[in-house]
Amino acid sequence: SIEEEIKKAEEAKEKGKTFIHGDFVATTEELLDELLKRLRKKL
């Protein structure tokens, strides 16, 4: 679910890890923020 993806992305951000969502690879905090923004729009 979208909620689960958001939670996983937030955890990755806290730990400074890379998060992959489909073909979107978030390797930096900026990219994770962008991904979180996109996911929240889908809610």
Rank of each mutant, 00 (worst) to 15 (best):
Ser1Ala: 11
Ser1Thr: 12
Ser1Val: 07
Ile2Phe: 06
Ile2Val: 11
Ile2Trp: 06
Glu3His: 10
Glu3Lys: 09
Glu3Ile: 13
Glu4Val: 06
Glu5Leu: 15
Glu5Trp: 15
Glu5Val: 15
Ile6Met: 03
Ile6Thr: 02
Lys7Ile: 09
Lys7Asn: 06
Lys7Met: 12
Lys8Leu: 12
Lys8Arg: 13
Ala9Leu: 13
Ala9His: 00
Ala9Pro: 01
Ala9Val: 14
Glu10Trp: 07
Glu10Arg: 03
Glu11Gly: 03
Glu11Asn: 04
Ala12Tyr: 04
Ala12Phe: 01
Lys13His: 03
Lys13Ser: 03
Lys13Arg: 12
Glu14Asp: 11
Glu14His: 10
Lys15Thr: 11
Lys15Pro: 01
Lys15Ala: 13
Lys15Gly: 09
Gly16Val: 04
Gly16Glu: 05
Gly16Pro: 00
Gly16Arg: 04
Lys17Asp: 12
Lys17Tyr: 15
Lys17Val: 14
Lys17Thr: 14
Lys17Gln: 14
Lys17Glu: 14
Lys17Cys: 14
Thr18Val: 13
Thr18Ala: 13
Thr18Arg: 01
Thr18Leu: 10
Phe19Val: 05
Phe19Thr: 03
Phe19Ser: 03
Phe19Gln: 03
Phe19Pro: 01
Ile20Leu: 05
Ile20Phe: 08
Ile20Ser: 07
Ile20Ala: 09
His21Thr: 05
His21Phe: 13
His21Trp: 15
His21Glu: 04
His21Asn: 03
Gly22Gln: 07
Gly22Asn: 06
Gly22Leu: 12
Asp23Val: 12
Asp23Tyr: 11
Phe24Met: 06
Phe24Ile: 07
Phe24Pro: 02
Phe24Gln: 02
Phe24His: 03
Val25Gln: 11
Val25Pro: 04
Val25His: 13
Ala26Ile: 10
Ala26Gly: 02
Ala26Tyr: 13
Ala26Pro: 05
Ala26Ser: 03
Thr27Arg: 08
Thr27Pro: 01
Thr27Asp: 15
Thr28Gly: 07
Thr28Cys: 12
Glu29Phe: 14
Glu29Ile: 15
Glu29Ser: 13
Glu29Pro: 15
Glu29Met: 14
Glu30Phe: 09
Glu30Trp: 12
Glu30Asn: 05
Leu31Lys: 04
Leu31Glu: 15
Leu31Met: 14
Leu31Ile: 07
Leu31Arg: 01
Leu32His: 01
Leu32Asp: 00
Leu32Pro: 00
Leu32Ser: 00
Leu32Cys: 00
Asp33Gly: 06
Asp33Met: 08
Asp33Leu: 10
Asp33Val: 09
Asp33Cys: 12
Glu34Ile: 10
Glu34Cys: 00
Leu35His: 01
Leu35Gly: 00
Leu35Glu: 02
Leu35Tyr: 03
Leu35Ile: 08
Leu35Ala: 01
Leu36Asp: 00
Leu36Glu: 00
Leu36Ile: 14
Leu36Ser: 00
Leu36Arg: 01
Lys37Met: 12
Lys37Arg: 14
Lys37Gln: 11
Lys37Asn: 11
Lys37Glu: 15
Lys37Ser: 10
Arg38Gln: 14
Arg38Ala: 14
Arg38Met: 15
Arg38Pro: 01
Arg38Ser: 11
Arg38Lys: 08
Arg38Cys: 15
Arg38Ile: 15
Arg38Tyr: 15
Leu39Pro: 01
Leu39Glu: 01
Leu39Thr: 00
Leu39Asp: 01
Leu39Ser: 00
Arg40Leu: 13
Arg40Phe: 13
Arg40Asp: 10
Arg40Tyr: 15
Lys41Gly: 07
Lys41Arg: 08
Lys41His: 10
Lys41Phe: 06
Lys42Thr: 08
Lys42Trp: 15
Lys42Glu: 14
Lys42Phe: 13
Lys42Asp: 11
Leu43His: 09
